[in-house]
Every structure is written in structure tokens, then in C-alpha cells.
Design a protein around this nucleic acid. Structure first.
Lengths: 343, 343
DNA sequence: TTGAAAGCGCTAACAA
DNA sequence: TTGTTAGCGCTTTCAA
């Protein structure tokens, strides 16, 4: 089955050495700028390598050094809305092709996850990033990994692990502060399912920020789904029950878009009568919203960047346990423009 | 810099052999079910491996066999709407962790692409999948790769390469046929920018299907952008210029959603007065559309699956040049329900 | 300044 | 049935 020595047509260092008329060891030194070599020799070897299109096999050096400059990125989020930005951030931190990432989509299946982890370990990855799909804590990897693991976005339920998360509560605070600063006083909160970790965190942030501003909430938080339908429904009910509402903070851009449509259809103008802020800053929704939606960006890319950085650090200098939190960022669009001259 | 022999705490086959009281060679045979061994020995070795949590280093076997069971997946599509399904399909074909994929996002930067390719080649990937972002042909990889390359979604401009694409023209035909079959006769086509490959292919499909049905197009194709704003604008203009229009085929779900809103706001009911079909079957848009949108699915996952399959085939049995086309699939939702009893 | 040789973890011939 | 050895492609001592 295994045919040894299937050295493809690729040039090896032996070919380079032969072409340059030096020994393999000398060629190695020349190519890696190590040791003491005559400049002429070095140049000759490099020219030979160039000519042959020599690309050193990192398989060989990995075997030698025990390091592969390779990590695993496990994503559980099938459509990638959350995992992709994390991947991009990780790529930033991993130095654009310095270290490469094996991406594994587990489809939320623990069996598959285990498979992937084993496979990654067999490939001797230097570390693993686990990118979750939601803000809930997730169970740690089943397989005990002999390499560092960093959880991104969804933190590990094990406090001894290293996780990077988004400060969702802080994001809500940002949103409310923005609304207050732009003159809104009657602020409602429409969010996703009751009991959902993100919803809980944001509700906490809303309360905190409203209290700090000396404002009463407009009714209880409105729990529902993450859909536009829910947003439209909530908008209708909200204007009926609290006709004086002048701002709505929504648990997601999707909800916010529904609220925007719902408000418009019940005769309220956005942002003149009611300001709107969503969460996710998901371009296809936020930018197509009428009007374009002010939104809290979860800064997932930065989460990925941090995760990558912490992973490299763990690989080089050991574990950094704990939950590392990344701030959200408010992206202002027209849906929250001040009603009048109030600033 | 390179510290040789940094054998981490991981168990190696030598440890397994020692624990089982056999030689390394014997341990290898036992673990790989090769050679003739006493059953008892095999079991003892396997137990030892189990106990030590031994996972064989594929780095070593890769060096030996010249095959890494690893591929590169280059994506140029930053938000992953097109590349992710391709990745998932590829994972299907690559046998869920049998072969692992390094995912590289080039951000459409040729320099970065070159970097990644070199890095992949250094890691001795068995092959490369290049997942494009649009239906336009793309220039082939700059670096001549000594391994098979398959282009997915965006085909290579070089006909000698192997590409897997979606049959966009066929998708348009599917849409028109569906509309005709459900009794529509005055069918308009609103699409993206003039000159865009996808738009061109779809326009061709529309003409073909209309001609086959013996119908006249309702005016020329409406070229614009891929946005909802364009859809809304087009809907208004369309109903003004062609009040008898009873169906609109849109170049994307986003456009279709704009058209849906535009129609509703000019007093047309969807689907009672006007049926609507989009392209992409992008859940967050198609499902949130009012009403939920019938859409042509590009079958990107199947594109990825094919690409993976062709790549493996190329790795094992050599190159399969040419453009391989995958059919689209119509996903029917309420936006195209028959107006009355006509079937 | 260069070459020769050992060895990374493992498999597969060959020897015992 | 088991052990020994060579070697995959490279880096790095150490000797020349």
C-alpha cells in the first residue's frame, strides 16, 4: 500500500546541491543563511535552488524540530457567520501563511469533532482553536489534547481553559449610551429567545446602562426569536403598548430589520420618531435595512486575532488560562441619527 | 533557532514498543495490521498504544510515503458566502478528516495568493482547490504547482486546467420553466450589472427558456446592481412600464427581496399578482423575504464535492482537465405559488 | 570554508 | 513469529 520513496518530480535539496556542486550540508547552510560560507558559494546554491524551483519540505523539518507551524481551527458554525471572521482574525495573527490552519467543520457533531481532533493531533498541529457558534459556554474538547487549545467566541465551560470572547454586555451598554447621547429617553429592548446567553448578557447591559443614565426601561425586555418576523411583530405590539417609545435596541440585526419594517408600517419614521440599533453588524442585513442600521459589531475578527495570538503564545511559552474579553464596537449608520438638533 | 529533537511529552512508537515488550518494527506491524504476528502480541501492543494514548505521527509517514493527505483550499471570497459551501462539499469528498484542508483566504490579493501557494507547496499538500468568488473565469495560479489543482465555482481561464462550475444558464432556465409551468406569461428579468458573467449567463438562459415556451420577454433585461435598492427601484419602474407583468426572475435573492418590497409598495401582491424567483437560495434573505422566496440554488456544496472528488482522482490517477458543470436546483417557496388554479 | 554523518518517527524490506 | 536495519528530506553537529 505504502510505496516508499515516491519522490515526486520535485527538486530536493540533493538536486540543488548537485547542481551547485556542493554537498547537501553546504546547500542547507547556504539556503538558510547559516554557518560560514563563501559568498560566492551561497549565491551559487541559491541560484541553483531558484533554477530548480526548490521549495524545502516542511515535512522534513517538522520531523526534525517537532514543530509543524500548523494549527487546527475547529468550527461548529455551519454557515460561518461567526466562525469566518474568527478565521480571518486568526490568519492575521498566524502571520499569513507562516502558520497554516486546517479548518474543520464539525457540524456540531461531537463524534465528528473527536475524529477531527484525532486527525489534527496525528498531523502534529502545534495547537488548536475552537471557534464556537454562540456565546454560550461549550463543553471542552473530549480528547485530551497534548497541545494548547484556545476557545474563541464560545468559551469553554472549563475555567482552566483559555477562551476569548466578546463582551456582549459591554456591547449593549455601548448601544444604550449612544441612544441616550443622541437624545433618546424611551428605550425599549427587543431580543431573542428567553434564556439565550447572548440575550441574557445584553439585557444585563441594557439595565446597567439605563440605570447609569437615570432612565426607566420601557417595559420588560421583549423576548422572542432572532427573526425578522419577530421584529415586525414586536414593533407593532411595542408601539401599541408604549406609543411614546423613541428608540429600540434589538438583539440582532435581523430582528432590527424586522422592527424597522414594522415601525415604518405602523407609521413611525426611523430615525425621526424612533431610533434603532442592532447587533452583529452583519453587512447584508445592516446595509440593506431601511434606513441603514446602526449596529454593535461583535469584533469577531479581533476575537480571532486574540485567539491566534494567545495560541502562539501558549505554543511558545505555555498556557494562558482564563477568559479574555474583547470589546464590541458601535458602527453608526442612519437608523440612529438624532431626531432633531439634540446631540 | 531550530532546536532539534524537541520530542514533546507525546508517546512515540518506541514507547509503545517498550511498554509492550516488543521491538519497534513489531509494534509498527501490530498497529497497522500488517505482517504475521501472534494475536496475543498484536493485542498487547494495541493495549499499550491505547494506554499511552499513542497517535502515530503522520509527519513521519508523510516523509516516508511522499503523501500528506492534506490539501490546500484557497478562497478569494472574503465573507465566504460562496466559498464556505464549497469547503463543506470538499470536506464531504475528502472523507471527513481522512484528508484535511488548509484554508487560505487570499483577500483577492495575488501576492498573498502566491505566498499561500508557496507555503502550501512547502507543506507538501497533495493538491489544491481554488474556490473563486464569482462565476467569471479567473487567471490560473501564478506559481506553477507540481500538484493537481482544481478550480471551483470560478473556473480557470486556462482551458487545460480542471474546473468545476455551476450551470448558471441552466439555473435560469429552471426558474423560467417553473414560472411558465405555474401559469405565468409576462415574465421580466431584473439582474445585476451589465457585463457581469453571471448576469450574462442568466440572460441567455432566460431567452432560451422563453423562446422554448413561445413567450416574448417583457422588455429587455433590467441591468443594475446586486442590491435591494436596485430591486425596489426596478420593481417600481417595471410596474409602471409594463403593468401587465405577472412574474419577475431576479439575478439574486437580494435583488428579489428588493423587488418583493417594491412590488408590495406599489400595490402588487406577491405571488397573487406577480410571482418572484431569485437566485442563490441564501437562507437569511430567501427565508426572511415577504413572502419567502422561491430561489435557484447554485448547488455550491455539490460543486465543492465534485472538486474534492476530482482532486483526489487527479492525485491518484492523474489530471482530468476541462470544465465540469453542476446543475442548479430550484427551491420552491411561496413567492411563486400559482396565481389561481392554473397549474 | 566545506563535507560527512547522525538522527527526527516511522514503515518495510530482510534476517534471525 | 519477531528483531534489525535502511531510509524518507532535511538540519546540525563535528571533522577535515
Amino acid at each position: 500500500m505504502l510505496v516508499p520513496g515516491k519522490t515526486s518530480g520535485r527538486a530536493g535539496i540533493a538536486d540543488v546541491a548537485r547542481l551547485a556542486g556542493v554537498s547537501i550540508g553546504t546547500a542547507s547552510k547556504a539556503l538558510n543563511d547559516r554557518g560560514q560560507l563563501r559568498e560566492e558559494t551561497r549565491a551559487r546554491v541559491q541560484a541553483a535552488a531558484e533554477q530548480l524551483g526548490f521549495i524545502p519540505s516542511s515535512v522534513a523539518t517538522s520531523l526534525l524540530t517537532g514543530r509543524t507551524f500548523t494549527v487546527g481551527l475547529i468550527m461548529t458554525d455551519h454557515h460561518g457567520r461567526f466562525s469566518l471572521p474568527v478565521l480571518h482574525g486568526a490568519e492575521d495573527a498566524l502571520g499569513w501563511a507562516e502558520t497554516l490552519a486546517f479548518v474543520c467543520d464539525t457540524r456540531d457533531d461531537p463524534i465528528r469533532e473527536q475524529h477531527y481532533v484525532r486527525s489534527l493531533l496525528g498531523r502534529r498541529v502545534d495547537g488548536i482553536i475552537v471557534a464556537g457558534r454562540r456565546a454560550e459556554a461549550r463543553p471542552p474538547l473530549i480528547t485530551r489534547a497534548p497541545v494548547p487549545v484556545v476557545y474563541a467566541f464560545a468559551r469553554s465551560a472549563d475555567e482552566g481553559d483559555c477562551s476569548v470572547v466578546t463582551d456582549e454586555e459591554g456591547g449593549a451598554v455601548l448601544a444604550i449610551e449612544h441612544l441616550v447621547r443622541t437624545g433618546r429617553r424611551r428605550i425599549a429592548h427587543v431580543t431573542g429567545p428567553h434564556g439565550h446567553a447572548s440575550a441574557i448578557a445584553r439585557v444585563a447591559g441594557v439595565s446597567r446602562a439605563l440605570r447609569a443614565a437615570g432612565l426607566e426601561p420601557v417595559g420588560d425586555p421583549w423576548y422572542g426569536g432572532w427573526s425578522e418576523v419577530w421584529g415586525r411583530f414586536a414593533a407593532a405590539a411595542l408601539t401599541r403598548e408604549h406609543p411614546d417609545v423613541d428608540a429600540v435596541f434589538c438583539g440582532s440585526d435581523t430582528i432590527a430589520r424586522g422592527v424597522a419594517d414594522g415601525l415604518r408600517e405602523s407609521g413611525r419614521r426611523v430615525p425621526e420618531d424612533v431610533a434603532l440599533v442592532g447587533v452583529d453588524n452583519w453587512a447584508p442585513i445592516a446595509e440593506e435595512c431601511r434606513p441603514p442600521l446602526t449596529s454593535v459589531d461583535l469584533n469577531l475578527r479581533e476575537v480571532g486575532r486574540q485567539a491566534g495570538r494567545l495560541l502562539l503564545q501558549a505554543i511558545e511559552n505555555g498556557h494562558t488560562p482564563g477568559v479574555h474579553s474583547v470589546d464590541c464596537q458601535l458602527v453608526v449608520r442612519s437608523s440612529s441619527a438624532p431626531a432633531s438638533g439634540r446631540t
